[in-house]
Simulated scan of single mutants.
Amino acid sequence: MAEETMNDFQDEIERSFRKVKEGDILEGTVIDISETEITLDLKYYTQGVIKVSDMSDDPKFSIHRDVKIGDEISATVISTDDGNGNILLSKKEANQLIAWDKIKEIADTDAYVDVKVSEAVKSGCVAFLEGIRGFIPASKLDLQFVEEDKLPEYVGKVLKVKVITADKDANKLVLSAREYLKEQADARRAEMISNIEVGLVTEGVVESLQNYGAFVNLGNGMTGLVHISQICNQRIAHPSSVLKVGQKVKVKVIAIKDGKLSLSMKALEEIAATEITEEKIEFESDGDATTSLGDLLKKAGF
């Protein structure tokens, strides 16, 4: 026990006589907090001082809320003498050196991290990651582009983001929440599709027309393709000769492959139209059930 105490004492002596130079990162214990600065015990012959302006880049930082006596803080030496015999330090600079290393690791591992949106700015929002100011473009805040007047609604929200640009030299950090949201939406869509069976007859709205067919929105974030050969019995040059965007159509699910729905309108041409009521699901002449996709998914727990 005595030997351990002597070793500790020897270590403190060596630390107190070590040479400190500008740019070094030192660790100290907070021993005093004032309105303008924080004082650290560096286990050195003199103390360390960090001005409030050198603590953080975060505009919401509060010296009394975010710092406590006894906290261990790493900071960079700005000057070996602040004019009063103390070592002048900057936690902000140390934060940046350490933070950029952590951010690079996050970017390299393609990991998701939680950030809290602190403010809305032109064309996006700001969030801090490891104390570094990051920008989330309006196109990366959600699955769809977020209009300028909607940006303030994201302030205060915690988002799961991925680092898409980390340039330490340019002090540029760009984040994106879209990738995580898309993964979640794709997983939910795949689960919903697993509850749909070939043969289902339902209604949807024509979302877009392409040379090869029409995409029909079935609701609940689900879209299927009616190939041009499945639109009607007659040969047509383009889907626009029969359909228009926004038109409500009845379709039959004829195939499900790789999470994609193949639909047909032609398969229903000879089937008599039936009315769907909340009380009863009628069956058509060929035995196909006509139901709302929303009702089907509601039964499946969505």
Rank of each mutant, 00 (worst) to 15 (best):
K162F: 04
E282H: 11
G224F: 04
Q184R: 15
K19E: 07
D101H: 08
S53D: 02
M1N: 07
D82G: 06
G219A: 09
S292L: 02
G124R: 02
E72K: 15
Y212C: 05
N95T: 10
K60Q: 04
L181H: 05
T291S: 10
F302K: 12
S53Q: 12
E93V: 03
E282R: 13
V174D: 02
A214I: 00
A2R: 15
I106Y: 10
V206K: 05
G156A: 03
L97Y: 10
G134H: 08
V30W: 08
Q247A: 14
T223P: 00
G221A: 12
I87C: 07
K21E: 06
D110F: 11
D58L: 07
I38V: 13
D142M: 13
E183N: 10
T5E: 14
N220G: 03
G83P: 01
N211E: 06
T46M: 09
L88M: 14
E282D: 04
E22Q: 14
L297P: 00
N195V: 00
P59K: 08
D167G: 04
S74A: 15
K162E: 01
G23R: 10
D41R: 07
A190F: 08
N7H: 11
E183D: 12
Y44V: 04
H64R: 12
A272H: 05
A214Q: 04
Q144D: 01
E105R: 15
S208Q: 12
V242Q: 03
K150C: 02
E197W: 11
T291L: 12
H227S: 15
N171L: 04
S208E: 05
C125T: 11
T76N: 09
S176D: 00
K260L: 14
A185Y: 11
K257R: 14
D11V: 07
I63E: 03
H227D: 02
E275K: 12
E269M: 05
E37A: 13
G48D: 04
I73Y: 15
K21S: 07
S118E: 05
V155E: 00
